[in-house]
Amino acid sequence: MTAVTDILHLLFTANLWQATLAAAVLLLLPALGGVISERSGVVNIAMEGMMLTGAFFGVVADLAWHNPLAATGVAMLAGALMATVHAVVSIQFRADQIVSGIAINIFAAGLTVFLVNRIYGLQDVGHVGQSELIPYINVPGLDQIPFLGKVLFQQNVIVYAALIILVLTHVVLFRTRLGLRIRAVGEHPQAADTAGINVFAIRYGAVITSGLLSGLSGAFLAIGISNTFVPNMTDGRGYIALAAMIFGKWTPGGAFIACLIFGLGQAIYDNNSIIHVSPYLLSMLPYLLTLIVLAGVVGRSTPPAADGLPYVPGSE
């Protein structure tokens, strides 16, 4: 019973919700990447690997240049590079997209540790200085609103950026010509092709965008929330983002709601010092939540019709 009252108590603190939003954004960026990629018909379970690669190269660049903005750019590029591999393998070579995704994740885990050893010897990567982290910015005025100010307007730059990207993704997907074409390619590539749309270009663009967003999330994790790279530091967040995308029925808004739920689980875990329960049991929370959500709450959801199917021109 104490654990329950502890958690209830926690729910009324602004700190918890501030942490929830930050944790949610960490998941939201790769989840949005997943939405874009899968809307174009390419199954993407490689967000984990792209995020990890982004985190690593973000730290490397920040340590080298002492410039968090440039480092964030490098992280995004690194994520995009991994995404390009996934794109080439699954779009050009028509490989099984799940196998390719798993390979990316294994590859990223191996490569990052391998490179830590090659670049930094067998020691630690080292820590990024406080002033070289992606900054937290309080929005003047708004940050003074009781409760909400702390939750919404005392956040990292990436959090604000992510919320803008969220709105942008929704508008692009459902209001613009580009979005119409992305969805057409994901639903019926043959129809899109016969209408004169370049299916491959759209799919490449969508997959690479997912890499940019995952890399951004990796940067947020490594040089925003944390200040160094630790092997396997993404710890399954890419996979949870995948679940959030499905839970959100392949929509940006839905994915965001799912990310908030998972973020809340994470925030409660991070505050475990005041909850009298094993932190490890609490850690199971987001994953069990995902299972329960998949099992019952959302019911069956339908992916884009051509999700996961390689496109062979001229086929019917």
Binding site: L180, R183, A184, E187, H188, Q190, A191, T194, A195, A305, E316
Partner: peptide, 8 residues
Amino acid sequence: HFMLIPVF
């Protein structure tokens, strides 16, 4: 086989 997208 129609080149139509049912959900559009």
